[in-house]
Computed example of a mutant assay.
Amino acid sequence: MKVAIAGAGAVGRSIARELIGGDHDVVLLERRRENIDVDAVAGATWVHADACELDNLEQAQLQTFDVVIAATGDDKANLVVSLLAKTEFAVGRVVARVNDPRNEWLFGEDWGVDVAVSTPRILASLVEEAVSVGDLVRLMTFRQGQANLVEITLPQDTSFAGKPVRKLVLPRDAALVAILRGGRVIVPQPDDPVEGGDELVFIAPAEVEDDLQAAILQS
């Protein structure tokens, strides 16, 4: 997969290292020449360019990329990069970093954003997830509310323990995508049993979240 990352600060570099470790082709776009350090991210292609400038993105041939990640520390810049990537270059997937949670409402498809990642919100969600057994915790929003990544931790004494995944009766448009058990990530199969303490991760529209929580806890 070919990925362009706008912004080569600490966040952009960290993302690049992870993606390169997964054998992806990564290009870092950085507008400040003094921030360019080829040795800092081995395997990445560095380009001195302002990703908010259309001419620079044309020179980088952004239309050839599968994913664009707007990872600068400036929300305005991330929105501009996202909009250009989607509308001018038809990039299939645009991921944008939200620095200030107050701006999160802007990061939707109107600005070309497919996935908005808000570090403060994720940290808050992880805290909630650590202390809220039985509660539904929203981890991430896709396409500004069309679907959410949510998690429910089953109580240890759940009556559903030992029953297979296929017995779960889920609301329409909700899908179980992973079971976290101890240090394992399990891709659920119909006959896999559910256990007390499992963390169940779903993709679901916001309007069925309450029904999803009720269905899981009443199973």
Rank of each mutant, 00 (worst) to 15 (best):
L19D: 03
S125K: 01
V177M: 05
R138D: 10
E128H: 03
P171G: 03
E18R: 15
G22T: 15
G112V: 01
E199Y: 03
T45N: 05
A4F: 00
I122S: 10
K76W: 14
F107P: 01
L136E: 12
D39E: 05
G112W: 01
G183M: 11
L139V: 06
F142C: 01
G12I: 02
T64W: 06
E104W: 09
A77C: 06
A214W: 10
I20W: 04
D135V: 09
L28V: 04
W111T: 05
D191I: 04
P164S: 08
P120T: 08
G112R: 00
A70F: 02
A49K: 07
V38I: 14
A90F: 03
L106C: 07
A6T: 02
D211Q: 13
I15E: 08
L106H: 12
V41P: 03
A40H: 14
N99C: 06
A90Y: 09
A90L: 07
E199W: 01
D157S: 15
A49L: 12
G7I: 02
G22K: 15
L123D: 04
R33D: 13
D74R: 09
S82Q: 01
D74T: 10
K76I: 12
R184N: 02
R166K: 07
F65A: 05
L180E: 13
R143Q: 09
N35I: 04
A49G: 14
T87D: 06
R13H: 05
A174P: 05
L123M: 12
P101D: 04
R166L: 07
G162C: 08
Q213W: 08
D110K: 06
T119E: 06
G9N: 05
D157Q: 11
E104L: 12
A49D: 11
Q218G: 13
R102H: 07
A6F: 01
L154V: 00
G43R: 11
L106I: 14
G92K: 10
E34H: 05
S14Y: 14
V67F: 01
I179L: 07
N99F: 00
R93Q: 05
W105P: 09
